[in-house]
């Protein structure tokens, strides 16, 4: 069993977001970088659990990014990846990133490709779906359970009215969300081992960007909270009806 886990570097969930250079660039000062939580907590940890059941499993990690992504790759290796591939491109265009990962996926002939449901920075939720088109493979999105039985995967996914269980033959692409696995903390042995695990850097394949970011914006600040006396809930209902017009 060969599993490819796609990981991405994102700002920590508590990061305060600000922009510089005329709102065209993220202000990275003071930002702590982490593995995108959906990639780490759900996709990677589930891959590690599958490897614990079947030790012959190989887990490869792939990320698209500059040399600054290597600390998060080492952390992912410390958690339990076997090998990592960094594709040396700093593109923010989902299509370009998916093309890079597709090239690695083709070469590696993986049985299973896992992604997080989205990254917490650009929230595009594109990579799994795009890989499905680029590799012509089935894709199950927003999965919270995944079991493997020989060459068949059983996956539970979120649907509008509840949950659906599906089966698909491998190879398969799955995007993972809460419920799939529980967050882990790397142990010292893992951290030591990660230092010597292979981290291969490959050049990006040619791919024209289909989108570009022209500027960022912050949400307008709230004009200030209107405090209502806890004894006066009729007043709050009146404001919600007549001023906010939401009920």
């Amino acid at each position: 069993m060969k599993i490819l886990v796609c990981i991405s570097k994102t700002p920590d969930t508590t990061a305060k977001i600000a922009f510089i250079e005329g709102n065209t660039k993220l202000d990275e000062s003071g930002i702590q970088w982490i593995i995108n939580p959906y990639d780490e907590w759900y996709a990677l940890v589930r891959a590690i659990e599958l490897k614990e059941k079947d030790p012959a499993t190989l887990i490869h990690l792939v990320t698209v990014g500059g040399v600054d992504t290597e600390p998060i790759i080492r952390k992912a290796l410390a958690l339990g990846g076997d090998e990592a591939i960094r594709i040396d491109s700093t593109s923010h265009d989902s299509f370009t990133i998916a093309n890079q990962i597709a090239a690695v996926a083709k070469e590696g002939a993986y049985d299973l490709i896992l992604t997080g449901k989205e990254t917490i920075d650009y929230n595009s939720a594109c990579i799994g779906s795009m890989l499905s088109a680029l590799l012509d493979l089935p894709f199950i999105s927003l999965a919270d359970h995944l079991e493997l039985n020989e060459k068949v995967a059983t996956v539970k996914r979120e649907i509008e009215s509840g949950e659906e269980t599906c089966e698909a033959n491998l190879p398969l692409i799955v995007s993972c969300q809460k419920g799939m696995a529980e967050q882990r903390i790397p142990n010292m042995r893992g951290i030591m081992a990660a230092r010597t695990k292979p981290l291969k850097v490959v050049a990006p394949v040619a791919s024209a960007a289909t989108t570009s970011i022209s500027a960022f914006d912050l949400p307008p600040a709230k004009s200030g909270v209107k405090l209502i006396d806890p004894e006066q809930m009729d007043e709050l209902v009146k404001l919600l009806k007549e001023e906010a017009k939401v009920i």
């Binding site: 265009d93 989902s94 299509f95 998916a98 989205e118 929230n123 595009s124 939720a125 594109c126 990579i127 799994g128 779906s129 795009m130 499905s132 088109a133 680029l134 894709f139 999105s141 927003l142 979120e158 649907i159 509008e160 289909t210 989108t211």
Partner: peptide, 23 residues
């Protein structure tokens, strides 16, 4: 950009050589 839309829109964009904005 709901459960099904987010599952298929990016794949459709690839098949149409189209740029995509989700969300």
């Amino acid at each position: 950009h709901n459960l099904n839309g987010r599952a298929i829109a990016p794949a459709v964009a690839v098949k149409l050589d189209a740029g995509i904005v989700t969300g």
